[in-house]
Design a protein around this nucleic acid. Structure first.
Length: 392
DNA sequence: TCTGGGGTCCTAGGACCC
DNA sequence: TCTGGGGTCCTAGGACCC
């Protein structure tokens, strides 16, 4: 989806169309005009919208409209920095509930047209065109156009589509023509369309891998493809080296993953100001309890229990630690999570000021699949294998 | 003027078991 | 006095993605 969060906001506030708008920060940061009850959202005069100018506070941009991107602001940029680059930009708080609503809407349209879909987050999917009637017409362009049109008619939102023989290339293709673009990449286009790109464009090569590659004199995917397999394995290890070799040649055999279970559920928060474990004990304790309650609520709503409880700290120097605590039974209620997380927290260093606290529950199991607590337990006895094979 | 929140996957070491 | 070869589970950190 194109500039997804910002585009959803523009549906509510059409008067912002064409203007630099950034989404980011919490409710607190922009409660000015938007917070109180309003006549009609579309009637709010432009002058009532909060601007980035003079913004103080933590947080990053999650999405910027294309008009805002002209000023050099974009995703993951600190809001304070963005305020310098584009003070006149309008800032709106994130509203995940609203984005999730539109996320469900567009995904429902996709699966209506093409049932084999892999969910890649709130605004992205992989779609298998192979078995869809008409999926091969004009190399996939006809079906891509149909998707765009249907999604736009139902939601008013635009998207970009990349069509290719595999997920790796489709993802890269989808970036070629944003917004509202369609790009088709065939195997024979590798040299002309993929090899000139920076290695960073490969989904899976991030800042660290890219830096290391550059240190080895490799900037483009073509340069990566020119290296032989053994050389890459020597520098990046068996798995990563072999994967890089395949990716640089446009090869990817991964199937679409159409269903999956969550691995962990977590909540975390960055404080308005750094807190000290001793001096701000009460405040920290209240946040800790709230995070546990939120995680418990998430588990309950989604129908899971977990037995590995973890905490995450980020210190004022941005370094972080995690501590895990695995129980011998599954839990889901806030008090039990708080208790286990408290145990984990005790094992973490707490002398430095904190900027973030998080609580996570992992080793999940569907509530209905969990062993019944306090129910009939099997009577423990010596392992039978030991009796049957005493010599080993 | 530092840098959100929610995730997944991988690696590596240690405990423990057979 | 010296010391295998599996395997699983747990923990911690880190890279990466949306």
């Amino acid at each position: 989806m194109d500039a997804f969060y910002a585009s959803v906001e523009l549906l509510r506030y059409p008067q912002l169309k064409g203007l630099p708008v950034v989404i980011g920060g919490g409710r607190r940061s922009v409660d000015a005009a938007i917070a109180t009850d309003l006549p009609a959202l579309a009637d709010i005069p432009l002058s009532d919208f909060p601007r980035l100018d003079g913004y103080t506070g933590r947080g990053v941009i999650t999405t910027a409209t294309y008009a805002a991107r002209q000023f050099g602001v974009g995703s993951a940029m600190g809001l304070m920095k963005a305020a310098k680059l584009c003070p006149q930009a309008i800032i709106l708080p994130v509203d995940f509930d609203e984005y999730r609503k539109y996320s469900r809407l567009f995904k429902a349209i996709v699966t209506d047209i093409a049932p084999v879909m892999e969910d890649r987050g709130i605004d992205e999917v992989y779609i298998d065109f192979t078995q869809v009637p008409g999926g091969q017409r004009e190399g996939g362009r006809v079906l891509a156009r149909l998707m765009q049109k249907t999604i736009f008619q139902a939601t008013g939102l635009t998207c970009s589509v990349g069509v290719a023989p595999n997920k790796l290339l489709a993802k890269m293709a989808s970036e070629f023509n944003k917004p509202q673009g369609i790009s088709i990449v065939l195997e024979q286009d590798l040299e002309a369309m993929i090899w000139p790109l920076a290695c960073r464009k490969i989904n899976g090569i991030g800042p660290k891998a890219d830096e290391k590659l550059q240190g080895l004199g490799i900037k483009t995917i073509g340069e990566l493809a020119a290296k032989d397999l053994q050389w890459l394995i020597d520098h990046f290890g068996q798995a990563t080296g072999a994967w890089m070799h395949e990716a640089s040649h446009g090869r990817d055999v991964r199937e679409l993953v159409t269903e999956s279970e969550p691995v962990s559920i977590s909540r975390e928060t960055t404080f308005d100001r750094d807190l000290h474990a001793v001096r701000d004990k009460a405040e920290l304790g209240a946040v800790f309890t709230r995070l546990c309650e939120q995680v418990a609520g998430d588990l309950q709503r989604k129908g899971y229990l977990g037995k590995t409880i973890g905490i995450k700290l980020r210190f004022d120097d941005f370094k972080g630690v995690t501590r895990d605590q695995t129980l011998d039974h599954y839990i889901g209620d806030a008090a039990a999570i708080r208790s286990a997380a408290g145990q984990a927290l005790k094992r973490a260093p707490l002398t430095q000021r904190l900027r973030l606290l998080g609580v996570r529950v992992g080793a999940l199991i569907k509530t209905e699949d969990a062993p019944v607590q306090g129910g009939k337990q099997p009577i423990p006895r010596p392992a039978q294998e030991a009796l049957l094979f005493p010599e080993d």
